[in-house]
Design a protein around this nucleic acid. Structure first.
Lengths: 220, 220, 220, 220
DNA sequence: GATGAATGAGCGTTCATTCAT
DNA sequence: CATGAATGAACGCTCATTCAT
């Protein structure tokens, strides 16, 4: 019995280890550009184990989606239901939290968008949109709509405002080369702009100013 | 003589035909996910012709970049130099033009971002960023900076405002499934949101409101 | 347990089987003229197995070299150190042994010379010369030099005398058509001169006479 | 009429130019290892011209054989019929002439032996053996036989003695790496042993000593 | 559960050759 | 005569996957 548990734990750890390795490789080199041989080598497991565990390369990808989907839910929802905050405060906190989350999960995030851009596997796309991307968008845009109804926000296009919020962050996360080129490369060897707090703060404050400025009614 | 011209045209047409076919396939399935056999079949040319014309799959990709790069230059620049327009008017026209251009070149655009997200071939990334993406970003953000200096615009982060503009459009162009889900799928068979003028106008007016509202000083 | 051993043997056998098959094909059609598909078909193994076992066609070739190199060492060296023999006796035995060895390894030998004549892959050439061809040549010519110093042999060009020894055998082994034409084709269907003991003995006795006659001092 | 001659001359020159270019490439990289694209590029002619002129790659090869075969006949024959020379003098001159000729035609010679070693195209092999290689061998060995009959030479195996003569030179011409390794590389950048007169003379005098010593009767 | 061996399909590329002009 | 364009076959190699143990 102990054996089984021990084994199962090892197996879970191994699966997780493979998933985490695969996320980085997929995010970096794309789904088609990454071979399961590479994943096996990087994760230091036998090549056949990946198919053994996940069934196929395709299903490994889906496992990644599932793994992260369950992991990243509910963060925004809690905040929305907090009644002690004004709508502006809520949006403000959402922006900060969102930037933080997307920056630290940027590899997984890239992988998601990689899959979205790619038109193959439409069921998987649907899954991603419905279960991961759309829920957050809907929650935020619903909050904006509520703020509008409550008279605190201007009559804006809530959906597209949310799209602008997410789109700005995604645009920044696209490629470190692009990001550095735009925001200014620092004289640091192997500079990674996504690990630079200044960059993150600059994005946060830009979004705060632009989005909140757009939403919140100006007093006469 | 006429024959020769006709022949030469055929050859150019064929190259262009291959390029246009490849853009769609690359945009849909990614660079690694598209085989030159697929491209050859889709373009109805012999497999070996692709290497004959372009040298390699890699160089075909670069040819696409070059083909579109020369094609899409200068559109914004002309507008910027027009002295009869206010900064607000310029930005406003840029937004409309940008949405139109990115919507109609969405496949090529997707291909670019596909390549940016994917980290392989860093020299090509650099080429894309430097020659295609950055120039537009720089022109727009320079215009914003000029508007700030002229006192017509607020003191905003010009770079990131430009990023928000581009990022919003890209976010919409990511996937038709996502776009439909967000903006509302119409009851049309094989509905393509990117061919829907309403969608385009909605994006335009959102960006007009948000970006211009953010930039232009409010009168007391 | 027996199973495992059996399995392991099969795998070694398979590698060896591929190598032996490849030697004949390479020797007959040359390295470039032989495709790994042909080798796979002739050896009755899956095409991909060759790369699985050897890594590449190039490395298969090197494996052949290594396989035979280890196999064919030390034959001459032992003889040289035998103190009970006169130099003439040593040379005499070397000639007989050399003819035997080259005749029975003629395919591998042809392959070596095929590679030497062809100038591609210079590192491999160096490897062949340094590790296979040169050692034998050096051993023999050193023996001749010793015979000279000992006063038993005439003052000849030891290196070139060795070259004549090897060159004569190689010239005979060049092509069975040439060999038959020179030494007389027998009225035997599918006659292979290299399997004809008479031919071998004729070569041996010619070399004995010529080389030994050249080396050994005539008594007054 | 003049046009035709002019053209025909140009065409002959071009054919010859292609042949000479091809000899070097084939000799260096082998028949299979050389593409007609390379030959076309090196000879600075259109790719299609080679098939146009020679019909196929195979036939180009045969054209080379024919071209050189007609070119290199009769050199030895004249000498044999000279009645003012002793047999020893004739053999001695043949050795010198043979070394000179093979050294300066080493590329073509290599190509011949490349083809002999390779077992494909048996009719071509027959052609080479019958028309190029055998005639010389026969002439020389017939001379030796005559010398034996005349009582000037020892009763040797005339055929194999001729083989030793040719085989020694071929062994030296095999590869410049091998040759340098055996005969001592000089401290000259891009040293080509085959252009070194010392090497040639050393080979000549070795063969003179060994072959003539073997053939010519010792006086009591 | 874990793994080396094996498979068949497909990859990007290059080949010798032929065609249309 | 000469040539760019085109072709179909084959190249070496790697892929995701399966199998036997």
């Amino acid at each position: 019995m102990l054996y089984q548990i021990h084994f199962s734990d090892m197996s879970t750890d191994k699966k997780e280890h493979i998933i985490l390795t695969a996320i980085n490789l997929f995010a970096t080199k794309g789904f088609e550009g990454t071979s399961i041989r590479e994943i096996a080598a990087a994760a230091n497991v036998n090549l056949a184990m990946i198919n053994y565990y996940f069934g196929s390369k395709e299903k490994l990808f889906e496992s990644i989606i599932d793994y992260k989907a369950t992991y990243s839910r509910g963060a925004i929802a809690d905040l929305v239901n907090d009644t002690t905050l004004s709508y502006q405060q809520k949006i403000s906190q959402i922006i900060d939290g969102y930037v933080d989350r997307l920056f630290s999960n940027r590899n997984f995030h890239r992988l998601l968008y990689h899959e979205l851009v790619t038109n193959t596997r439409p069921e998987l796309q649907l899954n991603i949109v419905n279960n991961i991307i759309y829920p957050n968008t809907r929650t935020i845009s619903a909050l904006i709509d509520d703020g509008i109804k409550a008279g605190e926000f201007n009559q804006v296009d809530a959906k597209l405002t949310t799209v602008s919020l997410v789109g700005t962050i995604n645009q920044i996360l696209l490629s470190s080369g692009y990001c550095s080129k735009i925001l200014g490369n620092k004289d640091v060897p192997n500079y990674d702009p996504y690990e630079d707090e200044e960059v993150k703060n600059r994005v946060k404050s830009h979004l705060q100013n632009m989005i909140c400025g757009y939403l919140v009614k100006k007093q006469a």
